[in-house]
Amino acid sequence: MMKEKISKYIDGEGNKEELEKLLKEDPESKEYFEQLLLMKSTLSEMNVQSPDVLNKVLEKDKKHKIVFRYRFAFASLLAVAIVSVLFLTFYNFKPQEKGITTPQLRSDTQNPSFGITAVKPEINISIGVRDDEILLSILERHGTITGSSVEGKGNDEFQDELQPEGNATQKVLYYKIVANEISQLVKDIEKIKGATITLPEALPQDDTEAEIIINIYEK
């Protein structure tokens, strides 16, 4: 208890008169007090000069982060696309007649747009891209960029409205293709070792924006 009081006292806390009396009357306390003062004084000179990490931080910040924003419709369309692909896959391998055990391919004349016609064809997605021209070029291959605006001057972020081309089926598959291409992008670029994709814990229930964060790691 006495040591805690002395510790407090050297930080300017506690009852000054009580401590002064204690230090006067008890040589052991006085010695402890003087030792702590010396120790504290030496400790206060032990700051180490930090290296300047500014350039490294800014470089990593620029290269390693691509931020996507998408609307709830994007997730809905992706879900529809996945369900459709699964449906088509299982449909193809379903035996057509009793006694036939080998899978049969669907006829080319069949309508391929199962379950997809309900999708509204005019949906746009809004994607914010941070300083990544390669990624933009991939997106451009699958759709027409119809609008472009700079978000904040001196900031590398920009945002585009993307309207995929083609019919409803193509629009739906577009989202899956983009996802595949992003995976391929990571594999193809020599400098890149791998990537992690972070999705929000829960998808938004309304039309507000959500974020996907892709961290890309250099070799």
């Binding site: 700051n47 180490v48 000069q49 930090s50 990490v53 500014l54 931080v57 800014l58 904040g152 900031n155």
Partner: peptide, 25 residues
């Protein structure tokens, strides 16, 4: 919050020494 580069520079310069020492110790 708006991603301003100049603000990032100021922020790193202001706090790097303090945080470096906290981590280093």
């Amino acid at each position: 919050k708006k991603g301003d580069i100049t603000a990032k520079e100021c922020f790193v310069r202001e706090y790097q020494n303090l945080i470096f020492n906290a981590i280093f110790q």
